[in-house]
């Protein structure tokens, strides 16, 4: 193909490149600088409220991957006692269906990322780990929790012209 217009298209494109050169940078230096994540983050780390849980097992039934294992025994006051509650997060696809299904609002997605572990066994979350106070609850399908979390950083607000 001939250069019929003597490279005018390229010059036009270069103008766009020059405009973009002057725009503020949008990237962040990740481990040092961190952006606030969404209030509804579906982090892999499930958080469990052991007081609200009745051991009905709905979460286990709805899990598409079948990774939630829950064992109960009859406890006092006509309630089930949750003996073991395990989630193999290695197989978890973070779909959040268990949180949506929970009829007693006892299960939450975790407000966390950086989920790498050194050993595969560490990926299996146990009952006490999930009930730990240190875990921050995410607002996924729990609007009352979402209100308490900081606002997500949006690129449109950082960049908008």
């Amino acid at each position: 193909m001939k250069f019929e217009r003597y490279g005018r298209g390229i010059a036009k494109g270069m103008v766009v490149t020059m405009i973009n050169l002057l725009r503020p940078r949008v990237v962040t230096q990740y481990p040092e600088q961190k952006l606030t994540i969404s209030q509804r983050t579906r982090g892999n780390e499930l958080v469990w409220d052991k007081d609200k849980c009745t051991g009905c097992g709905t979460c286990s039934k709805t899990c598409p991957q079948g990774v939630i294992r829950i064992e109960t025994s009859v406890g006092d006051e006509n309630k089930y006692f949750v003996e073991s509650f395990e989630v193999d997060t290695g197989y978890c696809i973070s779909c959040g269906l268990c949180v949506e299904a929970c009829p007693y609002d006892a299960l939450f997605m975790g407000y966390a990322y950086e989920l790498g572990r050194y050993r595969r066994g560490d990926l299996v979350l146990t009952r006490d780990e999930m009930a730990s106070e240190e875990r921050i609850r995410s607002g996924y399908n729990r609007p009352e929790v979402a209100e308490t979390l900081p606002r997500q950083t949006l690129l449109i607000e950082r960049e908008g012209d």
Binding site: I37, S38, Q39, R40, T41, R42, I93, S94, C95, G96, L97, E100, M109, S138, Y140, N141, P143, A146, Q152, L154, L155, I156, E159
Partner: peptide, 29 residues
């Protein structure tokens, strides 16, 4: 900028899992 919006609504940036049978999973913030 669009992915940010999806993240805000459904909590993930790539695999949204937002539509449900009979609607969507949750209302927009």
């Amino acid at each position: 900028k669009i992915v940010d919006l999806f993240d805000m609504v459904c909590g993930q940036r790539l695999l949204y899992n937002y539509m449900r049978i009979g609607g969507v999973s949750q209302d927009i913030p």
